[in-house]
Design a binder for these strands. Structure first.
Lengths: 249, 249
DNA sequence: ACGGCCGATTTGGTATGACCAATTCAAAAC
DNA sequence: GTTTTGAATTGGTCATACCAAATCGGCCGT
C-alpha cells in the first residue's frame, strides 16, 4: 500500500494526518464533535498523550477547536493557509479551479511586488532584474529555464521589497501549493514564443525606464496568460495518468 | 460583558505563548537549540506532556522544528502567516513598515479580487456592489461607515470569486493583523473627501460599465492613498534610528 | 406540560513516571 | 589528525491517575 518511500513520520503525525484528511474529506460536519480523546486513543491504539498532540496540530491548522467539552470541527473557509497542501494531496488530479485561484493570487502579489520593487530597487538590483529578464529571453524555448527565471525574478522582487507579509504568504503558497503541483506530472502547455518574447521585451523596457506600472501590468498579463493556458490544458480529458502507487479508480 | 475578558488560557497556551514571544524577540538565534523538554518542564513547573503540546504549537507556527536530538529555532521568514499576530502584539506601537507592507498586500489582493469579481458577477451581485459604493458615497464623512463599507465590498468581491486561496489569506491577514491593528488607538488621518468622492465615482462608473480594469486600478490607487496617509500619520517625525529598516539605495 | 435547577457522567487539562530509539558529542582508538 | 565508538542526552511513546469544566438527563416547582 505504501510506496518505497520509508515513512519516518512519527505516530502522532500519522494520527493527525488521518484525522485531518477525514475532516477535509468532509466526514464530519462543521461544528460536529470528534470522538473523544479517549475513544481516539483506543481507535489508534495509542495513549491520550499522542492523541492530544495530534489534535493540537489540527487546531493549529484551523480545522478543529479543542475545548473542554469536546473537539469540534471548523469550516474549512476559516482554516489556515496550511490546509491547502493536504487538500490538494487528497485529490488525484489538481482541481483546475484551485489552480486558477492560485495563479490569480500569485499574479496579483507578484505584480504588486514588482511594482514596488522597481520603484525602490537600487541600480544594482535593477541590473540584476534586467539580467534575469535577459536570460529568460535567451531561453524562451526551455521550460525549465523559464520556470527558474520567473522564480528568481519573483524572489528578487520580494527581496527588494523586504515585505515580511508578502514573503510569508508566498512561502505558504510555495510549500502548500506550488511545490506540490510541480511534483505532479507536467501538463503540456501551448506556449506562444512570440508572445512570450513580447512580454519579456515589455518587461525589459519597463525596467530600463523604471516604469513600475508597465512592469506590473505586464506581469499581470503574463500570469493571466499562463492561467489561461493551464486551464485549457487541465480542462480536457486528463490523459496522463502516471503510476504513482495509489490510483483509486 | 466583553470588558475584562478573563484570560482563561490553559497552561500549555501560556507556555507556548511565552516561548513563542521569546523566540520572536530573538532570544534564540535561528538554528539554535531550545532547552530540552525536560528542562522546560522544570522551568514551567509542569509535565513533559504539556511542554510537548506547547512545542507542537510552535512547530505549527513555523518558528521551531522539533526532532529527535533537540528543538531548533527557525528564522522568522520561514514561518507561517500566524506569527504576524504575536509579532505585532509584542510591540507597543505598530511598526509603520509592517502596516505599509500589509496595505500593499491587501491592495493587491482586493484589487485583483475586484477585477475578477466584476467580470464574473451576476447582475444581482453587481447591483449589491453598486449599492455598497453608493452607501460609501453617502457617508464619506463617517469613518466608521467607510470602514464597514469597504469591508463589505471586499467580502462581496471574495464571495463572488469564491476563491479559497484568496479567502484563506484574507482570513489570516484579518485575524493576525487587521483586527489587532483596529483594536489599537486610532490614528488621525487627513482625509480628502473630494478625492474620496472622486474615487467612489470612478468605482461606480466602472461597475456600471463592468470595466474591471478601471475598478481594479481605482481600488489599487485607493489603497495606495490610504497607505500614504497612514504612513504620514504613523511617522510624523523621521528620527534617525537605524534599526533593521530597509535602507537600500 | 413546561421550564429552570441540579447532579452524575463525559470530556478535556494536567501531572507522574517509565521505557525506547535516534541523535550528540566527547573520549578512545587508529 | 582522523575515525570509531559508546555513554549521555533528547525526543517519541505509553499507561495511569486525578482535577475542572462542559454536557446531558432527570427532578422539581410552577
Amino acid at each position: 500500500m505504501n510506496a518505497p518511500e520509508p515513512p519516518i513520520r512519527s505516530k502522532v503525525e500519522d494520527i493527525s494526518a488521518i484525522l485531518r484528511d477525514e475532516i477535509l474529506r468532509g466526514q464530519y460536519r462543521p461544528g460536529e464533535r470528534l470522538p473523544s480523546e479517549r475513544d481516539l486513543a483506543v481507535r489508534f491504539e495509542t495513549s491520550r498523550g499522542g492523541i492530544r498532540e495530534g489534535l493540537k496540530k489540527l487546531e493549529q491548522l484551523g480545522i478543529a477547536t479543542i475545548t473542554p467539552g469536546g473537539v469540534r470541527v471548523v469550516p474549512i473557509e476559516d482554516a489556515s493557509l496550511s490546509v491547502l497542501g493536504p487538500l490538494v494531496d487528497l485529490q488525484e488530479n489538481p482541481d483546475p479551479a484551485l489552480v486558477g485561484h492560485l495563479f490569480e493570487v500569485l499574479g496579483a502579489l507578484i505584480s504588486m511586488s514588482a511594482r514596488t520593487a522597481v520603484q525602490r530597487a537600487s541600480t544594482d538590483e535593477l541590473e540584476r532584474m534586467q539580467s534575469i529578464v535577459q536570460t529568460l529571453a535567451d531561453n524562451v524555448q526551455d521550460p525549465e529555464q523559464q520556470h527558474q527565471g520567473w522564480r528568481d525574478l519573483a524572489t528578487l522582487f520580494a527581496q527588494v521589497n523586504n515585505n515580511l507579509v508578502l514573503r510569508l504568504i508566498l512561502n505558504g503558497l510555495k510549500t502548500q501549493l506550488i511545490n506540490r503541483l510541480e511534483a505532479r506530472p507536467k501538463v503540456e502547455l501551448n506556449i506562444d514564443y512570440d508572445q512570450e518574447l513580447e512580454t519579456l521585451k515589455k518587461l525589459a523596457q519597463g525596467l530600463t525606464t523604471r516604469d513600475s506600472r508597465c512592469v506590473a501590468s505586464t506581469i499581470n498579463e503574463h500570469f493571466d496568460s499562463i492561467n489561461d493556458r493551464i486551464q485549457n490544458a487541465l480542462s480536457p480529458t486528463p490523459m496522463t495518468n502516471s503510476a504513482e502507487g495509489l490510483t483509486h479508480e
